[in-house]
Design a protein around this nucleic acid. Structure first.
Length: 875
RNA sequence: GGGGGAUUAGCUCAGUUGGUUCAGAGCGCCUGCCUUACAAGCAGGAUGUCGGCGGUUCGAAUCCGUCAUUCCCCA
């Protein structure tokens, strides 16, 4: 049976993933080993895999696979998030297509539809992760609305309420008029848009024809105005102090107030104050005891306070009111204006600041340990610089609005028994609520009187418990698993959710476990397309990961997303990177083909092979130390690059070429065994990155006993590095490259053997001569006392190398080449000597540096001597 | 408006406490090769005022100031 010329990934991937699953290698149970734990950032339950997931999960898999090889008890917990707004929006949309309106359904009916949807689409993304090779412990798959999980969410709500950390209050919230729910500050995206600034004049009350002019971007909110505000220092408006103004159209009389909040430079210096519809105005309103006039319905249309605009959409009103203001002589002018507007992350609707009764978490004190323990390094961020962003947010942390006017999620465990604002209790179950309510009301409250809060909790109010609740740490505190796996080790996520999720997990960790939730946070970047645009479904610029896997193989795609993706930097993705990854797997495949095809005999081991083995052994260990260090620093893509070069350049281009027997020649058994040992070491090191091909070749290269799989093999241990061998090789390498250059410049085919004469002027290391002969395809390597005429020549370490080549040598060209090198060396010498003659340098520089400069000087001088002599000899 | 980054080769990025030829890597590009593992390959090669200007220093990609450009977060 012939081994195919190119690696065919798909079959191997299916085979080995099934094998790993069957062997239970991904499953972890607590034991004596050190635990290494990662909890997956749970994707939306109904989501599909996109490039961001690919990047994120590949990194996690690399970390977990390496930890497994390091002998740790590796546990990667997968799962999904119920994603209340996103999922509910999808279900509503699907029902609408079927002609069903959400408003026609009861809560229970709607939830039935939602669970059907979840059962149908939920977990698709987890199946896709398997194709990528993700070695998650699938027996531990969690969902934020699992019964046990839900229980812990409610426990935490009740607990925080009892501790006084949760309160209910009327606040300005970000209202999504499309989803009809409040959203958190973090779910609002601010974008710059071109809009208009409207200059509108208000008549001063009691005057005949005195006016003031305000500037606003939202003329429709005029109907909700409660005051005009001016800066008390503004000299232009001292005549307005204590006066009142008349609101256009509605003709209400409102006070003119003074506050230095007003920016005298912006607009006209007169600000209209609409406490119900602007966060800053709300604060002003509270400060000055202004009336709050809410003119909007929940869906963004105006209500009866909007007078004749009752029922019309806010944007339609903006158009119509412009005309009315103009017709009635109130509109002074309009100007083009760029301002930032908040959009809902989920529905893209323009967010309306709205006053409403919501539940909040008081964050100030909770945030303290979470801030401290990141700043003091108990939790490390990679890259470290993101600590600054974190600190800024935590220093200015605001209360967290946790109620959402949705049905899909954890229903808030608050129970109302009357119409008063305090007629409610917070309890996990209805039974408990009855008891509490009875006490609070001072009379017997029956179940029929009790009404549970209609709203659900923000999704992040459940996912902030993720590292704890996946191990039942709240419902079954102190259990064996939570003790063993918590705190987890590394978290891999996007900086976008640093506040939504990371910060809050740290808060919950301290509040409920008294400890950090993880030791390291690795922040990935945003995956962008070639034009630098964020990959998104709406732009349609995101490739389908599964198609990529089918085209390039999972290993190729894994490499493709990691190869240029340092922590915290965006990943400008192009499928050519997957091509590079696929080429790499193919390279390894062909190295295997080469090694497997040789005829092995009990013959003498060539000297060059002995040297090659010595060298690669040293080289491998040198690189392994570097790779381990890069892993420890979470420089994953650099570790990959180091491995890439180790395999491609050192192993394939140098080592295999050095030991490769001639065409149809056999290889000695010692060399082949050493080579297979090296190959195994290399497979181990690539296993975290390209697990499938590693496993495939692991089983092809040598007979394996049942259960001898690379996924659980031991990560190579570092042996002492023979630096002398590495140094000798470097010199030999330089000679070989020079020989290749001579061939190239003179068009001498590789198969033509050449002679090499060496005139020794300086110390010379001849230990790799046998390798030079082989790699240079030399018929002769000889040391000589005299220069050789009529030869190509080069200089390494002041020793002269000659390759005679009859008449075809171009003496002038050779001279020019030597002259050029001479000039460069003289210039170099000059700069070195300048330094050495500089008294300040000699006084200020450390000895080591001076010694180095002297050595450089000596080398340059000796090289110049050789070059000059050669040039003379050519004349 | 406030805060935080970033700026090094055509692209994506390394570059530790300022000091080895420190100006680097991968990709791309150029040249020559279908040399029996691999053309998804081999061998060789070129490319930079380290964003600008100023400063500190014997010495600056590295430290300081300033300007420019740009990204992110917050208001």
């Amino acid at each position: 049976m012939e081994t195919p010329k190119t690696y065919e990934p798909l079959k191997a991937e299916e085979k080995w993933y099934a094998h790993w699953m069957e062997k239970g290698y991904f499953h972890s149970v607590p034991d004596d080993r050190e635990a290494y734990t990662i909890v997956i950032p749970p994707p939306n339950v109904t989501g599909v895999l996109h490039m961001g997931h690919m990047l994120n999960n590949t990194i996690q898999d690399v970390l977990i696979r390496r930890a497994r090889m390091l002998g740790k008890n590796a546990c990667w917990v997968p799962g999904t998030d119920h994603a209340s707004i996103a999922t509910e929006a999808k279900v509503v949309q699907k029902l609408r297509q079927e002609g069903i309106k959400k408003s026609d359904l009861t809560r229970d009916e709607f939830l039935k539809h939602a669970f059907e949807w979840k059962d149908k689409h939920g977990g698709i993304i987890l199946e896709q992760l398997k194709k990528l090779g993700a070695s998650c412990d699938w027996e531990r798959t969690s969902f934020t609305m699992d019964p046990g999980y839900s229980e812990s969410v409610l426990d935490v709500f009740v607990d925080l309420y009892k501790k006084g950390r949760i309160y209910r209050g009327v606040r300005m919230v970000n209202w999504d008029p499309e989803a009809l729910t409040a959203v958190s500050d973090e779910e609002v995206l601010h974008k710059e848009v071109n809009s208009k600034l409207f200059y509108v004049r208000y008549k001063i009350a009691g005057s005949d024809d005195q006016w003031l002019t305000i500037a606003t971007t939202r003329p429709e909110t005029i109907l909700g105005d409660s005051a005009i505000c001016i800066n008390p220092n503004d000299k232009r408006f001292t005549h307005l102090h204590g006066k009142q103004a008349i609101v256009p159209i509605s003709n209400r009389i409102i006070p003119i107030i003074q506050d230095d909040y007003v920016d005298m430079e912006f607009g006209t210096g007169c600000l209209k104050v609409t406490p119900a519809h602007d966060t800053n105005d709300y604060d002003l309103g509270k400060k000055h005891n202004l009336e709050t006039i809410d003119i909007f319905n929940d869906n963004g249309t105006l209500n009866e306070k909007g007078l004749h605009y009752d029922g019309l959409d806010r944007f339609e009103v903006r158009k119509q009111i412009e005309k009315e203001l103009y017709d009635k002589g109130y509109l002074v002018k309009t100007e083009d204006h760029i301002n930032k507007i908040g959009f809902s992350e989920r529905t893209n609707a323009v967010i309306e600041p709205k006053l409403s009764l919501q539940w909040f978490v008081d964050m100030k004190e909770l945030a303290q340990p979470a801030l401290e323990n990141v700043m003091n390094g108990n939790i490390k961020f990679h890259p470290d610089k993101l600590k600054n962003t974190y600190k800024h947010w935590m220093d200015n942390v605001k209360d967290w609005c946790i109620s959402r006017q949705l049905w899909w999620g954890h229903q808030i465990p608050a129970w109302y028994f009357g119409a008063g604002s305090e007629d409610y209790v917070v309890a996990k179950t209805a039974d408990e609520a009855i008891q509490l309510a009875t006490v609070k009301a001072g009379r017997t409250i029956s179940i029929s009187e009790l009404k549970q809060d209609e709203d659900v909790l923000d999704t992040w109010f459940s996912s902030w418990l993720w590292p704890i609740s996946v191990f039942d740490g709240l419902t079954n505190p102190g259990n064996e698993e939570i003790k063993y796996y918590y705190p987890t080790n590394d978290l891999v996520t996007a900086p976008e959710i640093m506040f939504f999720w990371v910060a809050r997990m740290i808060i919950a960790g301290y509040e409920y476990m008294g400890d950090i939730p993880f030791k390291n946070v690795y922040y990935t970047g945003i995956v962008r397309d070639k034009l630098g645009r964020k990959m998104s479904k709406s732009l349609g610029n995101s490739p389908d990961p599964i198609e990529l896997i089918e085209k390039y193989g999972a290993d190729g795609v894994r490499m493709g997303v990691l190869i240029s993706s340092p922590a915290g930097n965006d990943l400008p993705f192009d499928s050519s990177q997957c091509e590079q990854g696929r080429n790499f797997t193919n390279k390894i495949w062909n190295a295997y083909r080469l090694v497997s095809a040789w005829d092995v005999r009990e013959i003498e081991q060539p000297k060059s092979s002995i040297k090659a083995i010595e060298w690669f052994d040293a080289k491998f260990n040198q690189e392994l130390a570097i790779i381990n260090d890069l892993f420890d620093k979470f420089r994953i893509s650099e570790a990959l690059m180091a491995i890439y070069k180790l395999v491609w350049d050192d192993f394939c281009s140098w080592y295999l070429e050095m030991i490769k027997p001639g065409y149809e020649q056999p290889i000695d058994s010692k060399t082949i065994e050493s080579t297979k040992d090296f190959f195994e070491q290399i497979l181990k090191v690539i296993q975290p990155f390209t697990p499938f091909i590693a496993e495939e070749i692991w089983h092809l290269i040598r007979e394996r006993k049942e259960g001898d799989d690379i996924i659980i093999a031991e990560w190579p241990k570092i042996k002492a590095v023979n630096q002398a061998v590495l140094d000798s090789f470097t010199k030999g390498e330089e000679v070989i490259i020079n020989i290749r250059n001579v061939r190239k410049q003179n068009n001498i085919a590789n198969k033509v053997k050449m002679d090499l004469f060496i005139k020794k002027n300086n110390e010379i290391d001849s230990s790799f001569d046998s390798v030079i002969v082989k790699m240079g395809n030399l018929s002769l390597l000889e040391y000589t006392e005299t220069a050789i005429s009529n030869a190509n020549s080069f200089i390494v370490n002041s020793n002269e190398y000659y390759i005679p080549f009859g008449d075809s040598i171009d003496i002038e060209a050779e001279k020019a080449k030597l002259k050029e090198e001479l000039d460069y060396t003289k210039g170099f010498l000059n700069s070195v000597q300048k330094k050495l003659q500089n008294e300040k340098f000699m006084a200020g520089a450390p000895d080591q540096v001076v010694v180095m400069e002297r050595k450089k000087e000596a080398e340059a001088l000796s090289k110049i001597a050789v070059l000059e002599e050669k040039i003379t000899s050519l004349n």
